[in-house]
């Protein structure tokens, strides 16, 4: 599929865990704006692939990445590139909400603090408010910024984690099954938020829910057994897939 001005260009990306090859040479371009969904059965390598974009695989013992991943034309696996700076540009939201056991304010302020992004309390206050507003959480928590982030509901926690990621001004937000621990109402709120965020950020989302992929994404990639089977506009994938394996998966015959 042709994509104009791609954010990421991946060529022959392979990931090994020890002797096991989890991804067998993935080639994909990811659009600069909008939502790209990765779908596929458990163990197909979609989460592993997601973690190559912010080099979180580096933290896993025995994981090796080969091939090339470029972001805006720059190789993110370049030896001279510090993954710490990459992760400031590529934020991540995990499956299980993981706010720090600190106040809501400190959760959002943590990222800007470690990168030295603000000077003075007023600037930090403004940044915290802006991030919480963009994550759609401000109205719910503005009067209790000092309470622990872990005291919020699951859906609020997940939006707090998004606010925390937004605070460091990333260009990309990776989401690894962000709604799998949430109830339908919280999921709906989260999906609405994703729709708003895609105007500003490049969003890549891994999901087990095909309905969710169909609702929120613009493009969908189907992974199976470590291979990228099909990658196309979401509408095309869900109405007229080009591969029988994709067809079997989205109609519920496999996976």
């Amino acid at each position: 599929m042709d994509i104009q001005n791609p954010k990421f260009v991946c060529r022959d990306v392979r990931v090994h865990y020890g002797d096991f090859e989890a991804l067998h040479g993935i080639n994909i371009d990811i659009a600069d704006r909008g939502v790209t969904a990765f779908i596929g059965p458990s163990g197909c390598g979609k989460s592993t692939f997601l973690r190559t974009f912010n080099r979180m695989n580096d933290t896993i013992e025995g994981a090796r990445v080969s091939g090339s991943v470029t972001m805006d034309g720059q190789d993110i696996y370049d030896k001279g590139l510090d993954p710490v700076l990459l992760r400031a540009r590529v934020g991540m939201v995990f499956q299980k909400p993981n706010p720090f056991p600190k106040s809501i304010y400190d959760n959002v302020a943590y990222g800007p603090k470690i990168h030295g992004m603000t000077s003075g309390k007023a600037e930090m206050d403004a940044l915290v408010e802006r991030s919480l507003r963009r994550a759609g959480l401000w109205e719910e928590v503005k009067d209790r910024l000092k309470i622990a982030g872990t005291g919020l509901s699951g859906g609020q926690q997940q939006r707090l984690v998004i606010a925390r990621a937004i605070a460091v001004n990333p260009e990309v937000i990776l989401m690894d099954e962000p709604a799998s621990a949430l109830d339908p109402i919280a999921t709906a709120k989260l999906e609405a938020l994703i729709q708003e965020l895609k105007e500003r950020y490049c969003i890549i989302i891994v999901t087990h829910s095909m309905a969710q992929a169909a609702r929120v994404s613009d493009k969908t990639a189907f992974f199976y057994m470590g291979d990228l089977i099909e990658y196309d506009a979401t509408e095309k994938i869900f109405t007229n897939p080009g591969d029988t394996r994709t067809q079997d998966y989205i109609t519920g015959r496999t996976g």
Binding site: M56, V84, R87, M92, P101, V161, A165
Partner: peptide, 12 residues
């Protein structure tokens, strides 16, 4: 989760 959260924000 906590450590991953910090790492994903760019903490060393």
């Amino acid at each position: 989760g906590i450590v991953n959260g910090a790492l994903s924000l760019g903490a060393s």
